[in-house]
Design a protein around this nucleic acid. Structure first.
Length: 418
RNA sequence: GGAGGGGUGGCUGAGCGGUCGAAAGCGACGGUCUUGAAAACCGUUGGGCCCCACUCGGGGUCUCGAGGGUUCGAAUCCCUCCCCCUCCGCCA
């Protein structure tokens, strides 16, 4: 959520941001609702003040004078109820619309509206030059007997996978490796809940925009998170943080659940795009002036991790129209997948400025009140996709896969062979 | 799942239907004292929204788990819901 004051003093900024996102929201209506809501609230407040004053008078009176005063105050209650009811109604209508307003777009976010409009910032690492017929992750998984989508389809349906044997151990190694690395960067490890209440999803900006991507547990009013960003962000909801403790740097490890609605036919081979995967996610609460440098910091960590796995990658500055509601700016790291002959997203980091903290009501104290903190998130390691990138990039002629040096202390083996 | 108890300010904990945003204590912050610190003493100390001044500041309203209701007036009475705790049962 943005500061509603922008409607009063910086309408152009809102309009610009919407244009860059290729969105069309009725700003005039928002301006009008916001103003009406304030006007009605003021009237209701004044009616209520009169009512309370009358009550104070009555308390000092006795006998007939008291009776008369009570009779005179008879209809004040109705007036207050009516006015504050109206004020509430208009306020609710305003907030419902205002929740749909996405974060302002950062001036340095790339222009454009789709994934293809992302601006490539750099390519790191050489794409491997194979002198044999390579396999994609699906072929490798089958040949090595470590990925089983067929039985997963039998048990759970499409877009699920069983990960077996050394691949399972490899993923577990990735978790501990990634955690150790981000802990070394000052992030505190968390194992958060993966089922959350609605307010956590509204608070992080996934609702209302991406509601169709979220699994719902009927009857219990709970939802499965698509990333531990959600429970980590909501962790400090309704709190006033001590600025001396900022920045707070966390890292959550959790399963992630995504409906992947609207992706039918995309990435159908193997387990590149699945409904359930595991991820180590970094999350930061910081002072507003710190968020750009924190964003750079998260990106540096992400790049370092991918480099340590000896995976070629590129960094892109995501286009304004492809940002998602909460981000003001986002970098994706795309790993080279030889089997697809393409760079595909494996990690991502967003600066969400005060968009989430306003919705979640997370602030810090200043000399004259409180101010929303800034929040940022960044993938340390998406286990599934990272494992697939390792398989494809480090495959050998005989169908085996060499484990990157950095992971060997964690896996206990240095190769996955047929 | 069964039985009982409870939800008040950062914490503990009072609060007859009437001027209660709410006693008191603790904590925190500022000051006095001290070479410094502790102790002692003095003072300050929730948040949201809004109006006026639009610099300092002044004022209104909401907020005692949430939502309804009764009443001229509710933290205090009634209803619904949520959450927490204890005991029993079950269980990874």
């Amino acid at each position: 959520m943005l500061d509603p004051q922008l409607l009063r003093n910086n309408l152009d900024l809102l309009a610009d941001s919407l244009t860059r996102r290729d969105l069309d929201l009725d700003l005039d209506r928002l301006v009008e609702l916001e103003e009406r809501s304030r006007r009605l609230r003021h009237q209701a407040d004044e009616a209520r003040a009169a009512q309370k004053e009358a009550g104070r008078q009555i308390a000092t009176l006795v006998d007939e004078e008291k009776e008369k005063a009570i009779a005179a105050a008879q209809d004040m209650s109705d007036r207050v109820k009516h006015l504050s009811g109206e004020a509430d109604r208009v306020r609710d209508e305003f907030e419902r619309l205002w929740l749909e307003m996405p974060n302002l777009v950062d001036a340095t976010a790339a222009d454009g509206f789709t994934e293809d409009d992302a601006e490539e910032l750099r390519r790191i690492g050489d794409q491997p030059d194979f002198d044999f017929e390579i396999l994609d992750h699906s072929g490798l998984g089958e040949r090595l007997g470590i990925i089983d989508t067929e039985r997963a389809a039998k048990v759970s349906g499409s877009r699920f996978g069983y990960i077996r044997g050394r691949a399972a151990l490899l993923e577990l190694a990735l978790v501990r490796w990634a955690m150790d690395r981000v802990v070394a960067e000052g992030h505190e490890p968390f194992l958060p809940p993966v089922m959350v209440r609605e307010h956590a999803l509204v608070g992080t900006g996934f609702f209302p925009e991406a509601r169709d991507q979220v699994y719902e547990i009927p009857g219990d009013d709970l939802f499965l998170v698509g990333t531990s960003e959600v429970p980590l962000a909501a962790y400090h909801g309704d709190e006033i943080l001590d600025r001396k403790t900022l920045p707070l740097r966390y890292a959550g490890y959790s399963s992630c659940f995504r409906r992947e609605a609207g992706t039918y036919g995309k990435d159908t081979a193997g387990i590149f795009r699945v409904h359930q995967f595991e991820k180590v996610e970094m999350f930061v609460f910081c002072l507003p002036e710190e968020s750009p440098s924190e964003h750079d910091r998260l990106l540096e960590i992400e790049e370092a991790l991918v480099r340590e796995l000896e995976i070629p990658y590129r960094v892109v500055n995501v286009a304004a129209g492809d940002l998602g509601a909460s981000a003001t700016k986002k970098y994706d790291i795309e790993a080279w997948f030889p089997g697809q002959e393409a760079y595909r997203e494996i990690t991502s980091t967003s600066n969400t400025t005060d968009f989430q903290s306003r919705r979640l009501n997370i602030r810090y104290r200043t000399d004259d009140g409180t101010t929303p903190v800034h929040t940022l998130n960044g993938t340390a390691c998406a286990l599934g996709r990272t494992m697939l990138a390792i398989l494809e990039n480090h495959q050998q002629r005989d169908g085996s896969v060499i484990i990157p040096q950095a992971l060997r202390p964690y896996t206990g083996f240095d190769v996955i062979a047929p």
